[in-house]
Amino acid sequence: MACGNNCTCNGDGSRRNFLKNSIAALTTGLAGGALIDAFASCNPPTTKNDELVHVMTHDGKMVSVARSQVADFKPHISDEDVRRGIPGKKFVMVIDLSKCDGCGKCTKACNKMHYLPSNKEWIEVLEMQDSPKEAPYYFPKPCFHCDNPPCTKVCPVDATFKREDGIVGIDTDRCIGCRFCMAACPYSVRLFNWTEPVKPDFIEQTPAAEHVFQSKKGCVEKCDFCPHMAREGKLPACVTNCPMNAIWFGDANEDAVTCFDGTTTKLSQLLEDGAAYRFMEELGTEPRVYYLPPVNRTYSTKDMKIEKKEAEK
């Protein structure tokens, strides 16, 4: 009993406390073994082993399940579920450019999670300088999961698609490798498997569009917002490995985003206070990734070396 208690109280413990296969779950009253649920108080006191936890079902409802049963609570995810997305969610990311110091740990963590070789970057940290007199800044660029995605518009076989939860997914069992989406994406986010990728040594149960390892010869891949993690109530790899707490991830429906240290904040407040903007708003792609401008940076911009375009030199 005490473990659950201490766990929740331990710094970022509330984040860790989520059960493996639930979207949102939290242990109920702990300290002395007493348990009172004031409003919905029908939950009977339970023993240590049969404590009730709250689990989000895959159709977006919160249910009470005995903890002993939760371990086996692994909903089957069908092809249709994957194309629809996680019910009731609208995923959103906020990247705080004032905090990002370009360490590149997000890229490394992402590559590790998705078994990508070092020459592929789903989240790329660019060094940006908008004009010579302006100060440079680091610019992590994941897929923007646009609400008006130019890539899904042009896909001839519905291999890349917009999900209800905002994610733009790729079904590598469907992709024909025409690379029209790559031409259509104005942010150069999409990558192509020009040769046979090195496969990790495990078999995945979910449909291809939610595979952890997405690389397939002759198919396109890109940042997928880690839906397999979100289904378990966990943050994407780039967020949980950003030591600067520069990346926030959350659900716009809930109006909340969470960062590396577990801090959860109101999305609308964060966007308002930080004067958030979206990259190249004028393109009308309506990204689901917001940026907070690079004000009061904590690092020296003098050390930054900007790789210039050939034509700019």
């Binding site: 518009k153 042009v154 896909c155 001839p156 076989v157 519905d158 291999a159 469907r174 992709c175 024909i176 490798g177 025409c178 690379r179 029209f180 192509f192 498997n193 010869k217 002759g218 198919c219 396109v220």
Partner: peptide, 24 residues
């Protein structure tokens, strides 16, 4: 375009899964 495709063996997807919104 067939020469240019990453997976030409899936060409028939254009008929079975074709999206008429796509210029392709």
């Amino acid at each position: 375009p067939v020469l240019d495709m990453g997976r030409p063996e899936r060409l028939y997807f254009l008929i079975t899964h074709g999206r008429i919104q796509s210029p392709i």
